[in-house]
Design a protein around this nucleic acid. Sequence first.
RNA 1: GCCGCGUUAGCUCAGCUGGUAGAGCACCGCAUUCGUAAUGCGGGGGUCAGGUGUUCAAGUCACCUACGCGGCACCA
Length: 656
Amino acid sequence: MIEVTFPDGAKREFPDDATPLSIAESISKSLAKRTVLARVNGELRDAKRPLGGDATLELLSFSDPEALEVARHDAAHVLAQAVQELFPGTQVTIGPVIEDGFFYDFARKEPFSTDDFERIEAKMREIVDRDLPIEREVWAKEKAISHFKTIGEDYKAQIIDDVIPPGEPITLYNHGGEWSDLCRGPHLPSTGRLPKAFKLMKLAGAYWRGDHRNEMLQRIYGTAWLNEADLKAHLTRLEEAEKRDHRRLGRQMDLFHMQEEGKGMVFWHQKGLTLWRTIEAYVRRRLDAAGYVEVRTPQVLDRKFWEQSGHWEKYRENMFVAETAEDETLSLKPMNCPGHVQIFKFGQKSYRDLPLRMAEFGACHRYEPSGSLHGLMRVRAFTQDDAHIFCREDQIEDETAAFIELAASIHADFGLERDHISLGTRPELRAGSEAFWDRAEAQMLNAARKAGVEPVIAEGDGAFYAPKLDFQLKDAIGRTWTCGTIQLDYVLPERLDAEYVGEDGAKHRPVMLHRAILGSLERFIGVLIENYAGAFPMWLSPVQVVVASISEATEAYAEEAADVLRKAGLRVETDLRGEKINYKIREHSLAKIPVIAVVGAKEAEDRKLALRRFGSSDQTIIGLEEGAALLALEARPPDIARAQDAAASTAAAAAG
RNA sequence: GCCGCGUUAGCUCAGCUGGUAGAGCACCGCAUUCGUAAUGCGGGGGUCAGGUGUUCAAGUCACCUACGCGGCACCA
């Protein structure tokens, strides 16, 4: 007999061959029916796998999140079986669980088509209906390898050979003797337990073991849920996300466009550029206030320059290069840092000049692989809100901590919540000694802690020359975006021979901190569009107020009202068309204009505005001048609002 | 860059197994002057991404190219 301890602390004895499922059965039939998985001594196990000794046991049902994960894994297996039944000769490789679903990579000469999905899904449902018992088998390594080789599953044989560490048991999961797959498990007791709320989503190429030198496999993605309602909710979420796609909104809202002659390049329309200017002006104020100096460096520089900075050697294939009629080779700048070092080196710098925070809204060009381009999120021409902080080594932590606080405040002003900050540590390919990395990583970690942040370690994610901190932000629908980074650099000052004179009168090497808060303006605007689904807060909105006239009779007053609003600093458009007011309201509401000011005979007579705000059907009647002042107050950028409010309260205190 | 899928009016899309293009919205014109999410009527607009081929005949079939989309790889 073995002794089993339950979550409530109760202990009971069961036969030696007891399994979680048999134990569930001995307790109650309904419990057995619910049990799909077990946690044995803290480890997830098949419900049908014998405990094998005294153990703590927790029986899991589909109400436990772990069970959904396992169901998704089963869906991947059922997919693999279905595909192999329908397309004999297809080899299976790997099929893991991912967020919201699963995928399986297959090796097959002929391409799959999304038209096959319906058949495959039908076959998957059929396999579920067959309710095949899923059995775990433990195999000897050599036997397993030769088994997979014999049945033509070379990839599986390779996994056992290369990937599974020696000593770890080789387990196969068998679907009722019909089909089996190498798998770590655990799995559901039978295929019949898999909820049919799954759907195949997309087809994609994927390199074997993620290496582009290897052959390309065909990956089928699916989503799987516990019930139809959850599946439907997920599909609805995807539709909603599509509606806020910045590429779609960018076109609808007339913000920007891209065209084939300029792959990865943006044509900013008036409204998009208004957003841009608003953001740039805001960031510039914040940088001015934080003790940065702003500079601008050349767009195109001679090859010799890039050779010296090391970019020609390391970054050549990502640079746009031009030949001149005078046989010079020039390159568009992919980064601003070498340029900033030149300004640093112009004249002599003293330790008194440090830290020197040099900022540039730097337009950079990088030749990115065509397949990686994606709307505003990944482009070939972009403007970074870049800056380099030249400082002494003992200033790194304070500067980094101050930067974290500045970035956090700016991100918050844009309505983006921080998910976490990651610390990218030494990558496999790196420059510098272990001692250097130990020190540099500790500096970044301490700086983050100084700013009250515990970073999440991203092992091996650092730059090749130093560690970095990345800001992971969360948008309105929970997606995370990397915006903002700070990277330590001892290498570039050395390469480009930057120096300052220290207190001791001798020359010293400064350290550089590369940092950006938004990343690139392009990408950040993309993130903002998706975060707000195009409904920007007043201060960002390209058009803040539309003055809509009710009839021709109020045209003159509408113009006058718009003028007053403009003089108050608002971005205003008028709509004087001979359309009905309903039509105008609908149109400007769909355009997500923050405020519609309706003016009819009544308003014209009393010199008033009827204000209607986005997302509400209420209207407020207010005097024209009063309304202009109120809206101008609402339209203040957050930093200006804070400064004015603080000044006002100081004045009030002084007066009171 | 690699794999798959797409490309039809300004936008969103329809066009069956080949028989010389269609809707809604937008746009333009006319009428309407209207009180908080679509006024009516009329009109213009397409080398069906580009090219080559098969065919009596190609938006439709085949191949090539470009671009886009979804992934993969890349993002010092």
